[in-house]
């Protein structure tokens, strides 16, 4: 029997999903989420995970128009995050770039890595303390940058065995070459 095709539907984010996404953002950024994001949060529901988009008013008008004709966008606006089935929220590379463009570095958690660390990180690997140049946080989700301050992706900063710092690679811009197409 043929499996039923999953129908994705872009809808306003459910309150609990919105809370999960905004909590993730406020963990990293000091500026107000409503001011940071270009528009309302929508989620692509119906699949194995939820892709979350921030959609500005102009695009939203078009999205509603499309929806009226039964056309569901593949994506719309700023791809902000993915909510996985286990409720884990993974920030997008687009969001890292957006924060970098909109905010002062002092306003967001970031960890600077060395040139050697950059190479490692962009291969999708974790970066150890020897290649961590500077950070403005002790622990948790962080934007990872190179020494020029350019966003290389997202990492999770923690101490290995309670001692040395380590950045676990969550997502890095090397993904565009490895898988993005």
């Amino acid at each position: 029997m043929q499996a039923k095709k999953k129908m994705l539907k872009l809808k306003p984010l459910k309150p609990e999903d919105r809370k999960a996404v905004t909590s993730m953002i406020v963990e990293v950024v000091k500026c107000k989420v409503d001011k940071l994001l270009p528009g309302k949060l929508y989620g692509q529901y119906g699949g194995s995970h939820i892709d979350v988009y921030s959609i500005n008013e102009s695009l939203l008008t078009r999205v509603k128009q499309l929806s009226y004709h039964g056309i569901n966008p593949y994506s719309a606006g700023l791809y902000t995050a993915t909510i996985w089935r286990n409720q884990k929220v993974e920030p997008s590379l687009d969001l890292a770039k957006h924060i970098w463009m909109k905010c002062n570095p002092a306003e967001y958690r970031h960890t600077v890595i060395s040139e050697a660390g950059e190479k490692i990180f962009l291969y999708g690997k974790d970066v150890f303390h020897g290649n961590i140049v500077q950070t403005n946080t002790e622990f948790g989700l962080t934007i990872v940058t190179n020494t020029r301050g350019e966003p290389l992706g997202w990492g999770f900063l923690r101490r290995k065995n309670g001692k040395e710092l380590l950045i676990e690679n969550i997502k890095d811009v090397g993904w565009y070459v490895r898988a993005g197409g």
Partner: peptide, 15 residues
Amino acid sequence: RSHLSRMGFNNHIII
């Protein structure tokens, strides 16, 4: 979608 994302553009709908 990947290229639009990589190059920092958000003001789009993809169908």
